[in-house]
Design a protein around this nucleic acid. Structure first.
Lengths: 257, 257
DNA sequence: CGATCGATTGAGGGAACTCAACCCCTGTGG
DNA sequence: CCACAGGGGTTGAGTTCCCTCAATCGATCG
């Protein structure tokens, strides 16, 4: 829990949404939306909310009709099973939506936790629905977003189901890389915002396994690594690795080669 | 490939959709739809299509604006990765939707194969969209269906990520059981429509592992099993097993107890 | 300067995979 | 009618990859 020494600025002064100027507009909205349509969308969007690092945006099981668009920062989505074990169902970054998994049931299926100080836009699902009816293009776009989420989860299912640790990790790094590229950041080097433990929780591996695999990647020259900053020095190799075409060498094999 | 000796009846005589009388209407449609609204839905639904066992309804990568509602029968959804390995992303039964994963991209992300002789209703997504705008309740229902799919995949992610073979299999059997119960069939005994290999492909396990686990379940008295017909003789135990609270006993432990 | 958290590294064990043989059932053709 | 092939399933033996347990390290923070 954080102690807030200064008054929370957005709580005191609820700023209006400004999709029009938002840097990540292209990620949230369809391209061909008229100015007036964007204004109507802005009108239904609630206040912006700051979420400090490690703070909970919403909690699994909470009744909620709210979706959240990440303005900046990073989040993890966590599910807790009956035995109390935690599983990470996804990482969200700027321009991505949080809380889609509440649409079927009205209650959040996961807990959203900020990985760093972040900001989100509140989107009341009920009002969004009304708007979707008025702006069919927006509805189609919303469906695309949900469809993408389904595809993302299918991809995760596949690597959890039949990929080895090194393939999972390579896929994960490449996925982050692509998402940063789409946001105009470097696809070659970036910071991991999540702990090794979170990565393990997402990939279905232990923290030790993540650590070892990263070490192997570094020894093989696929990546350079310093704490949480990664550089993909041999993307080709990672791609081949992710596809399962080229196994990584361990120490003995390296010495032999 | 099947040789069709008699003309395909629905191809020759495209029967009109009849959602109103459909036994699984409650699964496809929201409850509070007026008769006229149901009629409008029926009008956009294309012909019914029969799909024979082992036949392909649609193929991964195909461009398509079509969704399919299963009228009767069972399907599996299969993805093939770059290395050529196949992974089962789901099993669909009467009242469930096929092809949702094409909504984001317009092309099917998986191949749908009939596990037995089956029948589906064609639903053109473009026309459905128009209707969703006119019938907001139907739109909300459609979103619920997509939301459910997201939740289902999350559940699969979790058991692929951190459950042992016995937990995955117990979860799988219980899930089938619940779905048959919702359809008015017995939740206690039913036929597995898919091969052991397909189950393995879905659960991220090998066929041998499935076979051994089923044998253990039977030895422990949780189920009775005859070829593909299963009876859940101790549901409590399976539930505890799925939750990871109670490990199954192997032969040695059984003798000791 | 300890305390703590995240991360790394090592040793050992176990669950699931691989490889292989075998069984059962069905269909097919001589 | 039998022989035989083939697919789906079961069972056994050996191996491997990852997990578990444990010690250590570095960085950060009070």
């Amino acid at each position: 829990m954080h102690i807030v020494l200064h008054p929370e600025p957005t709580a005191a002064r609820p700023t209006a949404a400004r999709c029009a100027q938002c840097a990540f507009r292209a990620l949230c909205l369809p391209e061909n939306l008229s100015d007036s349509e964007v204004v109507r969308l802005e009108q239904i969007i609630g206040r912006r909310r700051r979420v400090l690092r490690d703070d909970v945006l919403f909690r699994m099981g909470e009744q909620s009709g709210m979706l959240y668009a990440v303005r900046f920062g990073h989040f993890k989505s966590v599910q807790t099973d009956r035995r109390g074990d935690q599983h990470i169902t996804g990482f969200q970054m700027a321009g991505e939506l949080l809380g889609i998994d509440s649409i079927g049931t009205g209650q959040h299926a996961s807990t959203a936790i900020a990985l760093e100080d972040s900001e989100v836009c509140e989107i009341p699902y009920a009002k969004l629905q009304e708007l979707l009816v008025q702006i069919p293009r927006l509805m189609a776009h919303f469906h695309r977003i949900m469809g993408r989420e389904i595809l993302r989860e299918q991809a995760v299912m596949i690597f959890l189901g039949n990929m080895r640790a090194e393939q999972r990790l390579a896929s994960f790094l490449l996925n982050l890389s692509e998402r940063y590229a789409m946001r105009g950041y470097s696809s070659r080097s970036f910071q991991l915002r999540m702990s090794r433990e979170d990565i393990g929780g997402y990939l279905g591996l232990t923290i030790e396994c993540i650590s070892r695999q990263l070490a192997r990647f570094r020894q093989n020259g696929w990546i350079t690594l310093n704490k949480r900053s990664v550089e993909l020095t041999d993307r080709e190799a990672l791609v081949a690795l992710a596809a399962g075409l080229q196994p990584a060498l361990d120490e003995r094999q390296q010495r032999a080669a």
